[in-house]
Write a protein that binds this DNA or RNA. Structure first.
Length: 764
DNA sequence: TCACAGTGACTTTTT
DNA sequence: GTCACTGTGA
């Protein structure tokens, strides 16, 4: 019996779906039906190859991609619901919760994010300033992406300085003391524990018959080793990637994983998918114009399957505000013609750029969603609540403890906090305190002032009470937690976990969800009053935000198990979409999103904003980095199905200062015949296509400001110091523009008209 | 111990 | 321009 879903595939796709046996590498161009191939393959394996669904593992990089993949696979084959479709990190976390004891990790760990890493590092090495610490923390994260422990001599790839290895070691010790893990550990620790314990590795290998990896071009060394360990002799491995879309080198992604795949896995079959079903050929022409400038690529040209379509539009706008207004206008006008808001996506290089769009869209009542903005979880009040939760889950979490012990103020100072933590650590070493770490120390600590003592007791009792409620809701203890042998297979474990969820959804009818816990924390800790008074004086919405977290918590059972799931979800899926204003229509909204986050997504109408040098691409140092930026642009362009707009602003407010911007060199790579250009073309754009008739000498410029700001004159700028004017020009908007070389070596462009407060002429 | 005010650094990109 | 950190005075 042939399945219907096979009949819609082209020959290459069909070959990819039905291929079995040797490892398979699918080189899938943008829009070539990659997700369709993977999801169909899952369905095919289950329906036609009789693979048990739970023996299939499919890993992606983002939660969003995993969710989409699961939904699409389920539509093709109901039983696919039982297959494991997860992100690399969530799969790592899942393994670590089950078998963390092999890596010396207690199962009640929580995941530390980048900020926590920095704080912990400062504690481990107090001589570091926060700034230094964040550089080191970044390197530690990178080291873990390469699966390098502090002892590993190869650590010099990251930083050859012995001091770095030492700091990394100090950090690791401190982290292990807290019983927590960081993001890198979610991959590295499972790798290390499998490599150290062949029995464990064999056992895990036997759990999967099929492993598939999406966006393989962005996998890093640690993830590669993870994969190597998961794939056994009888595991069928299939990876999908596109070298032109590799955009995570900064995070350790190694393009060699895809280039060397054949070497690492014998008899690899390679299938190429180059038919693009997504974008019109006009859009693909631009994409190709851009990406062909990259030297290090396997090289391919997408074949357009759809029609010509409309030429992409390049719009030059005067300012960042105008850019947002332009987009708002595009969206509103099309909406009047019946185009839903959700057809639109506005893409930008940095998160900070979303602000202008938010402002304008709010004014115009255009609904939008921001994808991937961490803002909600970075809010003070939310972090406080999460730290309460973290401390309840893991009483050795000193960072969480520090944050909340004196919030709101209970008369407990830094010194006392330090004392308690140290007391807890000492006691733990001499095993006076067995399980409840710092919490227990709160009760046993002696020698604090009366006021402090009272505060500490209050806090300790609060946590203890909350914890007891959770434990009393635990129900029957699951067998999973005590699992140290390999008697259960993943099917059974997954089944048990599913049963727990079922049990919960029956319980949750009585509203016994984790939101109760959060509510109690808010009320009893005093945070409610504390933030209510702040809200009153500063007009913020902190209390409301805390309520928001309650509703997120509603999906989890009100017990310890639910708590750790809740925390996992928060840490592993920060992308929780934050919606604005009128909640209901959440499905019909413009998407505001960073270019990086668009990987794997598509939209009928796409705007790529901020096409200016310094923003996109950023001022890059190496040709390699520039190529990565170019790939990012390529990814952005190929998200568009029908219409593509590129916007480039002449002025932009950066660091609270108005700066004259130069056009992005990427725009010069697109054949002008492939674009419709709106607005005045800046000289820096024309220059890309003209052959050496530059007129930026500034000698005879006819402008009122030309007499004052002459080439060769010396200037002083508030922020950059002294410098000399090296060229002058006039923009289309008749603004007088000067280029200044500063003593610091920096070169900057200014419009003197807007710099009256910062820039002065130095009279010689 | 805490609240406030002044100063300086800051923008990549993500799990 | 904004946020986080630091130092001072209560």
């Amino acid at each position: 019996m042939t399945q219907d879903y096979l009949s819609v595939l082209n020959p290459e796709q069909l070959e990819a779906v039905t291929h079995t046996g040797s490892p398979l590498l699918i080189l899938a161009g943008a829009g070539s039906g990659k997700t369709r191939v993977i999801t169909t393959k899952i369905a095919y394996l289950i329906d036609e190859q009789n693979i048990e669904p739970w023996k299939i593992l499919a890993v992606t990089f983002t939660k969003k991609a995993a969710t989409e993949m699961r939904e699409r696979a389920e539509k093709l084959c109901e039983r696919a619901v039982k297959s494991q479709i997860k992100t690399f990190h969530s799969f790592g976390a899942w393994l670590l919760r089950l078998y963390g004891n092999f890596a010396g990790i207690d199962s009640n760990f929580t995941v530390y994010d980048d900020d926590d890493m920095v704080s912990l590092l400062v504690k481990a090495a107090p001589q570091l300033s926060k700034q230094q610490a964040s550089i080191v923390a970044h390197k530690i994260a990178l080291a873990k992406d390469y699966c390098l422990t502090p002892e590993n001599p190869d650590l010099r790839i990251i930083d050859s300085d012995a001091e770095f290895a030492e700091l990394y070691g100090l950090y690791e010790n401190r982290l292990r003391e807290t019983g927590n893990v960081d993001f890198g550990d979610l991959i590295m620790l499972p790798v290390l524990m499998m490599e150290k314990n062949p029995d464990l590795r064999n056992y895990i290998q036997n759990q999967f018959k099929v492993i598939m990896v999406d966006e393989y071009q962005d996998s890093n060394v640690a993830q590669f080793r993870f994969l190597k360990n998961l794939v056994g002799e009888n595991t069928y491995l299939c990876v999908v990637g596109d070298d032109d879309q590799s955009i995570y080198k900064f995070r350790g992604a190694d393009i060699n994983n895809i280039l060397d795949f054949q070497k690492e896995f014998n008899n690899t079959k390679i299938i190429r998918l180059v038919k693009n079903y997504r974008s019109t050929s006009q859009i693909l022409k631009c994409a190709d114009d851009v990406v062909k400038n990259n030297k290090s690529r396997l090289g391919k040209t997408l074949e357009a399957v759809r029609g010509e379509g409309k030429k992409p539009v390049l719009a030059f706008v005067p300012s960042g505000d105008d850019e947002a207004t332009f987009c708002g206008e595009l969206v509103s006008q099309s909406n009047k013609k019946g185009v839903p808001y959700s057809d639109w996506a506005v893409l930008y290089r940095t998160n900070a750029q979303s602000l202008n769009f938010e402002k304008v869209f709010n004014q115009r009542k255009i609904p939008y969603v921001i994808v991937g903005s961490l803002k909600f979880f970075e809010r003070e009040e939310i972090k406080d609540l999460i730290c309460f939760c973290k401390f309840i889950a893991n009483p050795m979490d000193e960072l969480a403890f520090e944050r909340i012990i004196n919030k709101p103020a209970r008369g407990i100072g830094k010194v006392s906090v330090e004392k308690i933590i140290n007391f807890a650590k000492e006691s733990k070493k001499s095993s006076l305190i067995e399980t409840d770490g710092i919490l227990e120390a709160c009760f046993q600590m002696k020698g604090l002032s009366k006021k402090t003592q009272e505060g500490v007791s209050f806090f300790g009792n609060l946590i203890k009470d909350l914890k007891e409620i959770l434990i009393s809701n635990e129900g029957k203890k699951t067998e999973i937690e005590t699992l140290a042998d390999f008697s259960l297979d993943f099917e059974t474990i997954l089944q048990q976990q599913e049963n727990q969820l079922k049990e919960f959804s029956e319980n949750s009818a009585e509203e016994n969800t984790l939101s109760k816990l959060i509510e109690t924390i808010i009320k009893k800790s005093g945070l409610a009053e504390y933030y209510a008074s702040i809200d009153e004086t500063t007009g913020t919405q902190k209390v409301l935000n805390m309520q928001e977290l309650c509703s997120v918590a509603r999906d989890f059972p009100n017990n310890m198990e639910g708590l750790s799931r809740f925390l996992d979800q928060l840490e592993l899926d920060r992308s929780l979409e934050t919606e604005n204003s009128s909640d209901d229509e959440n499905k019909n909204a413009v998407t505001l999103i960073t270019l990086h986050n668009t990987k794997g997504l598509e939209f009928p109408k796409v705007v790529i904003s901020g096409m200016e040098y310094g923003i996109f691409p950023r001022r890059e140092k190496t040709p390699d980095e520039l190529e990565e930026e170019r790939r990012l642009f390529y990814v952005g362009i190929t998200r568009a199905k029908d219409h593509l707009y590129l916007t480039s602003s002449k002025l932009r407010v950066l660091y609270g200062r108005l700066e004259a911007m130069e056009v992005s060199p990427f725009l010069g790579e697109i054949n002008p015949e492939n674009l419709d250009v709106l607005g005045n073309q800046p000289p820096s754009y024309k220059r890309f296509f003209s052959k050496g008739n530059s007129s930026e000498n500034g000698e005879n410029l006819d402008h009122p400001l030309a007499k004052r700001w002459k080439k060769g004159a010396f200037v002083y700028h508030d922020d950059y110091g002294t410098g000399q004017i090296i060229n002058c020009s006039i923009t289309e908007d008749e603004e007088y523009c000067i280029g200044v070389q500063f003593e610091t070596g920096e070169k900057k462009k200014f419009l003197p008209k807007y710099q009256q407060n910062h820039l002065t002429l130095v009279v010689e």
